[in-house]
Design a binder for these strands. Structure first.
Length: 256
DNA sequence: ATGTCCCTTCACAAGGGA
């Protein structure tokens, strides 16, 4: 079973690129972030034409997440619900069961800059995600993929000195991620590649991809059951190339 | 490195977000 997570930075702007990639790769499950479209405008045919079923949680202009799968996603939930419904006004979380595995697509808030309101919102959102995971039944295998907007440690940063303390790398964000993982989740890429220096995002603004000035902020976090069965984790750098590319590359895992 | 890309609207230029 192969799962891929990809922040598209607009599914409508990425339609042709995504179709070509999907035809060539055909993962069993595709987790999407930043679809940037209301549900009524979602391009369903892009998926159904290729045999995928897709469940979506979108909004106008920003955010938006989805899960596409070759088998039927069941028990779909959107947002945190329960006591954290106040943090559900932005479309950043969707979950479904696929082939017995609880699969989650997350788009963690970017946080803009340390000390801003958006940064505080990011930390609050991550705390809510931890509470949401606490409600998950440990009997069901769990994998959470998405754009976490956090580089877990300095191995995940092209220039740790330049990024020290900045948003995406600051200690409170990293601590929030560790708090989440303390539930019993493994960063699949890092487990597979202890010394790996692969990145998943390169800023458009600094022409960063050309210089490979990237950060690894897109992750699969898996529970012990799934983590033990992972055989590969790769970042598809090729998909970041070209003028019509998202600023994120797809991240892929294979589960035996 | 204030350099790009995508979205939206009191829309064809400018602001917000990343």
């Amino acid at each position: 079973m192969r799962l891929v997570t990809w922040n598209l930075n607009s599914i409508r702007a990425r339609t042709d690129k995504l179709r070509g990639w999907l035809e060539a790769e055909r993962p069993d499950v595709l987790l999407l972030q930043e679809t940037k479209v209301e549900d009524a405008g979602f391009p369903h045919a892009l998926f159904t034409d290729l045999g995928y079923q897709v469940v979506i949680h979108g909004q106008k202009s920003y955010n938006g997440v989805a899960i596409a799968a070759l088998t039927t996603p069941t028990d779909v939930t959107i947002g945190f619900g329960a006591s954290d419904a106040a943090l559900d006004e932005q479309a950043r979380l969707i979950a479904a069961t696929v082939d017995g595995v609880r699969v989650v697509s997350v788009y963690v808030p970017n946080g803009q800059a340390v000390g801003t309101d958006k940064y505080e919102y990011k930390l609050a959102w991550l705390a809510a995600l931890r509470r949401w995971i606490d409600r998950h039944d440990r009997a069901q295998p769990l994998v959470i993929g998405g754009d976490w907007n956090i580089a877990p440690d300095d191995r995940d940063v092209h220039d740790p000195k330049r990024w020290a303390g900045k948003v995406l790398c600051s200690e409170p964000e990293r601590a929030a991620l560790r708090e989440l993982m303390a539930w019993g989740l493994t960063d699949v890429y890092r487990a597979q590649h202890p010394d790996g220096r692969a990145y998943s995002w390169w800023d458009y603004r600094t022409i960063a991809f050309f210089k490979d000035q990237g950060l690894r902020i897109d992750h699969f976090l898996a529970d012990a059951t799934i983590a033990a069965r992972v055989t590969t984790c790769a970042i598809d750098r090729e998909a970041r190339k070209g003028r019509d590319a998202s600023d994120h590359a797809p991240v892929s895992i294979t589960i035996a």
